[in-house]
């Protein structure tokens, strides 16, 4: 059960009006509809009935919206699946071409690679922050530091994109990528002319954006590790880092995994910041310094001027994105379910 058991059992009969209630009713007899309503409300049954059902229908709306979103995407995307079919597996997304080509694979590839790289870069940093916040920082530092880290999550993604275009991308292009090409060029991952607007730039920006999410949840996970666990390790003579690595991290393993998966879900769905720095090139890429594109980015760029098969194909892309995001999300929520239940009161 989540939280305290509600103390009003839903199906129990309402308490009958006490002597006070009934005398008040008799004392002020009112006429008409208003009086009837008031008396009914005072008699409790109607008021409770209305209110419970009002809240229940709001809860149904939550579920209904999710179902509605799925249904709407399916209906709008269906014509594209029929018209394009296996064309979705093509190597090029070129809706303006003659004939138009709707190969979704490079976009799926772009989405997965940017999100995966972001996770690779962001998660270690986020775990480090979580360790500092839960194990190292004195209480005086802890609260302001966590507020500051959480501010990173509050910055709108379009502002990240603005910063990415004018600060991050030029910086990486001028100061980081040449060095990267010189040192690691032989791997083939960093070939081509480095423009700054590329897969790697998008991944770095995404990594920055998922750090606050992953670190906040990881901190909660680490906090939930029993103190006895740490004391036991200390009693065996472990150094502070050994306490973290041998006693704290293994205990929170599934929660930390869940936090990372949630970060992956965020990275996959992120739209504006990515579309502003990834270069928007709808083809396969082999080098991380090449421009590319992701599904959310294509949706944001093309939906408002699309029509016919193109629009329907975009909805089909939406379905793909939705399914990927949904799977990852459900996985993350299941991993975090235990933590969430405990955290409901914190």
């Amino acid at each position: 059960m989540d939280g305290p058991t509600p103390i009003f059992p839903t199906d129990a009969p309402p308490p009958s009006g006490g002597p006070l209630g009934s005398s008040a009713q008799e004392g002020s007899p009112r006429k008409g509809l208003r009086g009837l309503l008031l008396r009914a409300l005072r008699g409790r049954r109607l008021g409770d009935l209305v209110f419970v059902n009002l809240t229940r229908s709001a809860a149904v709306v939550v579920v209904g919206l999710v179902v509605g979103i799925v249904a709407s995407l399916m209906i709008s995307g269906k014509p594209a699946f029929e018209a394009i079919g296996s064309g979705f597996l093509g190597p090029e997304w070129l809706p303006g071409g003659q004939p138009p080509r709707y190969g979704a694979l490079p976009l799926v590839w772009g989405t997965l690679v940017t999100a995966g790289l972001a996770l690779l870069l962001g998660v270690p940093v986020a775990f480090g922050i979580a360790i500092v916040l839960s194990e190292l920082a004195p209480p005086v530092v802890r609260t302001p530091l966590s507020i500051v880290i959480e501010l990173l999550a509050a910055i709108p993604s379009v502002v990240y994109g603005l910063w990415g275009i004018f600060i991050l991308a030029p910086f990486l292009r001028d100061s980081v990528y040449p060095g990267l090409q010189a040192t690691w060029g032989w791997t083939g991952l960093f070939g081509g002319a480095a423009s700054g607007y590329s897969v790697l730039t998008a991944a770095i920006l995404l990594a920055i954006m998922i750090i606050p999410t992953v670190s906040a949840i990881s901190r909660e996970v680490l906090r939930a590790v029993p103190v006895a666990q740490r004391e036991a390790a200390l009693a065996l003579g472990a150094t502070p880092w050994e306490v973290v690595r041998m006693a704290v991290l293994p205990y929170g393993r599934s929660g930390l995994f869940g936090a990372s998966v949630l970060g992956l879900a965020r990275a996959i769905g992120e739209t504006m910041a990515v579309t502003m720095v990834i270069g928007n090139r709808n083809a396969f890429f082999s080098s991380l310094l090449q421009p590319a594109n992701t599904i959310p980015s294509v949706l944001a760029n093309e939906v408002f001027e699309a029509s016919g098969t193109h629009l329907s194909a975009l909805f089909a892309l939406g379905i793909i994105l939705f399914l990927v995001a949904l799977t990852i999300n459900i996985f993350a929520q299941l991993l975090l379910l235990r933590l969430r239940r405990r955290g409901a009161h914190a």
Partner: peptide, 15 residues
């Protein structure tokens, strides 16, 4: 509600 809160916002725009 938990899963829904993490939907990509562009999907909701598409909806």
């Amino acid at each position: 509600a938990d899963v829904f809160a993490e939907f990509p916002s562009i999907i909701i725009g598409l909806f």
